[in-house]
Design a protein around this nucleic acid. Sequence first.
DNA 1: ACTAAAAGTAAAAAATATATTACTTAATGT
DNA 2: ACATTAAGTAATATATTTTTTACTTTTAGT
Lengths: 74, 74
Amino acid sequence: MGIQGKIHNQIRRLRFEHDEMTQAALAKAAGVTRQTIMSLEANKYSPSLELAFKISRVFNKPLTEVFSYEQTEP
Amino acid sequence: MGIQGKIHNQIRRLRFEHDEMTQAALAKAAGVTRQTIMSLEANKYSPSLELAFKISRVFNKPLTEVFSYEQTEP
DNA sequence: ACTAAAAGTAAAAAATATATTACTTAATGT
DNA sequence: ACATTAAGTAATATATTTTTTACTTTTAGT
């Protein structure tokens, strides 16, 4: 999707707050590829809900603290 | 994805709580097809994060009140 | 019983996310 | 300066989500 709002994430920041966790380490912990993490940090696309939950769980944060939806009113 | 946890949603319940909102009405409000809503209620797959945010917004609830991630410990 | 609206089912196409592979660039330590 | 590790880029393949279309069944009202 992608006309209305945009998804932002705090992945990069949270990685550093978690002892400079590496992209590869996060990827492994979340059960995805490093490229997936890369693409998310580079905002190439937004993740599936499942992946969003997994990443949040790695950081021990509620999903909405990791991902946010910036809505442009239609 | 889909080995570890499962995503549950409260869409159907929330539709009824919102004045018996119809699947078609929710679909329109969220900017997707009725089939998409159907498939989500039938748990055929889990949505994109963006759609999850959109649906939550229609119900005026935080995402985590509409969608939950039931995690089976690995 | 009839009608209309809503919900369910299904198949295939289109769009988007994720994996795989491989290479390049940047950063860090020795 | 060299080696190593992390990060960035990119192309293609695979998987998953969403649309489109069309038809069937259920539900509610008259």
